[in-house]
Design a protein around this nucleic acid. Structure first.
Lengths: 142, 142
DNA sequence: CTCCTCTTTGACTTTTATTGACTATCTGTT
DNA sequence: AACAGATAGTCAATAAAAGTCAAAGAGGAG
């Protein structure tokens, strides 16, 4: 099970976050890059692909002297519903574009607000994300 | 009884899986192809024909640098995909009773067969069961 | 032999990772 | 206020996988 550099950095950060008191860490990009002996933009890459909102994280940063990158794992109530809202409005959009019927969109929204809401948060976020992709596929079919 | 290349690759992978601690292996497509001296897509062929969900396997993969294919065997107690089939035919039944439109049922079935298929089995089964309950609620609404 | 199904192959596509040059934005000092 | 230095972000090029698809081949059943 050999992992890529990106995987290792991801792992490292996730451990730090879980160990932290408030599920939130602050790092310096260059420092981390040195730890893993890579270019700084690699860190940016890892953060932007693996610590997205969809995955349940929020990041903030500041440039310049005393700069930092803060990653926080959000705790579901807030975040989970952001993703849900986003998905619901995406479905509305599809309906307005006549890619989905009213019946389809109503059903979907009902499922999203009941069936899927009971899933464990980490799968729920993944599910919503996957659902969006699959919907795109569906409406683009012939 | 001459065994084909595909058969031999299948055998090889199954032995590896059974020997593994957690009934799960990770391979690199090119590497395996080299071992068997064939083109990489042959491996894809074997995996997609012999390690299906019906057979009790789940596969995940990643492209790009340090990519991999992971195959895991799960125990389909009482049939993992039985739950899915049951759900699909339940949806058909609802459609025949005009509780769902064709559009709704098509969309649902599409989601069931693609979106939800690559979730971890234990959640998927739960999701399918939940989905059925929620559908009953939905069609009984006014 | 003929047809059909399963296998094998390879050209082309898509996704993911890594790197580095260039840009933007802070902080602190003069 | 202007500048210098320290950070982080962006983007595009390159490489390293895996996926797709259709054409060609091989073996059996009739």
């Amino acid at each position: 099970m050999k992992r890529s550099l990106a995987d290792r950095i991801e792992q490292y950060l996730k451990v730090l976050i879980e160990r932290s008191e408030d599920k939130q860490i602050e790092i310096q990009r260059v420092e981390l890059a040195e730890t893993f002996d890579c270019v700084p933009s690699q860190v940016t890459y890892v953060i932007s692909t693996r610590f997205t909102e969809m995955e349940g994280y929020v990041t903030e940063s500041r440039r310049g002297g005393k700069g930092y990158v803060r990653i926080s794992r959000y705790h579901l109530e807030n975040g989970g519903s952001t993703v849900r809202k986003e998905l619901v409005s995406f479905i509305d959009k599809l309906m307005q574009e006549d890619a989905l019927t009213t019946g389809q969109s109503d059903l979907l929204k009902y499922l999203i607000n009941s069936s899927f809401i009971d899933m464990p948060p980490e799968y729920r976020i993944r599910l919503f994300k996957q659902l969006r992709k699959t919907l795109v596929d569906y409406v683009n079919m012939d």
